[in-house]
Every structure is written in structure tokens, then in C-alpha cells.
Amino acid sequence: MIELSHVSKQFGDDIAVEDITLRIAKGKFCALVGTSGCGKSTTLRMINRLIEHSSGDIFLDGQAIEQYDPVKLRRRIGYVIQSTGLFPHWNVARNIGLVPRLLKWPATEINTRVEELMGVLGLPVGEFAHKYPHQLSGGQAQRVGVARALAADPDILLMDEPFGALDPITREKLQDELAKLQARLHKTIVFVTHDMDEALKLADHLVVMRDGRIVQQGTPLALLQQPADPFVESLLGGLERGLKQAALTRVKDHMTSLGPSWPAQSRIPADFSLRQALSMMLRDHCDRLTVVDQGDVPIGELSLRRIVKEAQLDKVSQRDA
């Protein structure tokens, strides 16, 4: 668990981060979002003491981070950056095995671990182990970067715009894989990004920052439903907000049981999002879809009226609360 309590950071006269209070529970995925220069990267680097905070307290598993030896602290926190920071004079296997080597694991154990991680991240050992970073594509290099961060099996992973330099298709693929990985490994992840869609897609907890301060934090859905101010609203996409919210909602949560009426022509898998369902309705010029399970067997139906109404109900219940 990571806890920041009234943390500030000053560089000379400049205040980079001001009075940040944040709690990230174990196994949660927290995204820090904001425009460039808002202090999100500084916040991240204070957690592994690459930057020492000026005031306030940062706790890791209940212990103030000043009490840890910074080197030992960093070895138990995985760290991934946009430029990958891979060592150009080491091959892939040696790069990945860095932290276990620093922790003086036995050589055979390091090898096993490196091969295991390369498997997890879709890097065939025979093809990649002996390649050098300059021989890799951007996506492959970032996979190696993530593998290196996970090598010593840290509880915490800090990621500083890890997919920012990748092309949209590779970026989306790596986001999906990270989501899957997280569902399996349950690391505590702090993820810095300026891409709100990326944050909405991956995070359990969203923190919006501006000028070194936290503007709003909460679950992605909560922020979408009630942005605190016009800045957060514009970050969330303004008019696109409705669609973004729909993207976070599964079809199966809004479907009704199959009625006696005529089944709809268009079929949609139950684990697709409402956004995809709306898109399908627009494409096929219909207001009803048949919801199917993985075996393409109809299990319910989804109607446009219901989606719109329930969205309204959500809003009413929010206001009442």
C-alpha cells in the first residue's frame, strides 16, 4: 500500500507538487492524469526516491520511505519509463535480469526467471534473448522494459508514460496486455499518462492533476458522471463523455432477458462495452441487439431505450446520493 499525506515538492522557488494526499490500496491500479508539467511525473518519482519530497509524508506498507535505504527501496519497486531506459550495451536477457542480479540471485534462478518473463510478455527466448535494444521495435523494447521492471517480482510498479512513444495500434495492444497481466498479478501500479482514454481503460482509481495539485480523484465512472470542474470535464472529452462512460460499461450489465418479441438481427457478445453496442446500432440502423455468450448462443437482449433510460437513472441516483 502506498500513502501520500500532504506531500509537496519545491525546486528552488518553483513549487512542482503541492499538498498531495493520496492512498493507493494494495493491488490497485492508480492513474495520474494531467497536462504536461502538472507534477504527475514528479509525484511518481518521489515514491521511489529518485526525487526527495520537500514536506509531508510518504508511506510504503505503513513505513515512512525515509526509513528505507533508497537503493534497497528501488530494488523492490518496478519502474518503467517512456524511453524504456534499456542499457544499449546489454542484450535483452541481461537487461531483464538486472535487478535479480543486483539482489544476488543464483545464476540459474535468474535465467529461469528471465525466460519465464519473456514468455509472459510474448518475447520468444530463442529470437530475442541475445538481441540488443537497438535491434528492437518500439513495442518490443517496451515489453523488455516491463519485463525488467517485473523481474524481481516487486509488489509495486511505477510506470511513467510507458506507452507514450508508441504508435496507436501497438499502444492499444500493450494496454490490453497490461490489463490482462494486472488481472493475473495484482500489483500495486501507479501509472502516469496524459492520455485520458488510456487512464479510463486501465485504472481502478483516477487522479487528475493540475499545476501540482490534485483536482479530483475517484473511480473512472465517478469522474465521468460528476467531473469537479470544467478542466476535468474537458480532459474527460467534453461532449464525448457519454461515450467514454459507455465504454466502461459492459453489455451484460444492461441486458434484459430474451423477450417474446422478434429477436434482433444484430448480435453482440455479452462482454463488449455499451459503446460498441451503440456503434453497432448506428451501423446496422436498429435499436435492439441480441446479446450472445462466448458460444454465440443468445442469452438476452439490449435496447437503445433501456440504455438511455438507465443512464438517466444512474444520474438521478447520483444526485440523490
Partner: peptide, 9 residues
């Protein structure tokens, strides 16, 4: 690269 080295411990 050097910052990464530091961050790796």
C-alpha cells in the same frame, strides 16, 4: 539511461 540505472537500484 543513467536515471533508469538509478531507478533499478
Amino acid at each position: 539511461t543513467l536515471q533508469a540505472a538509478k531507478a533499478m537500484g
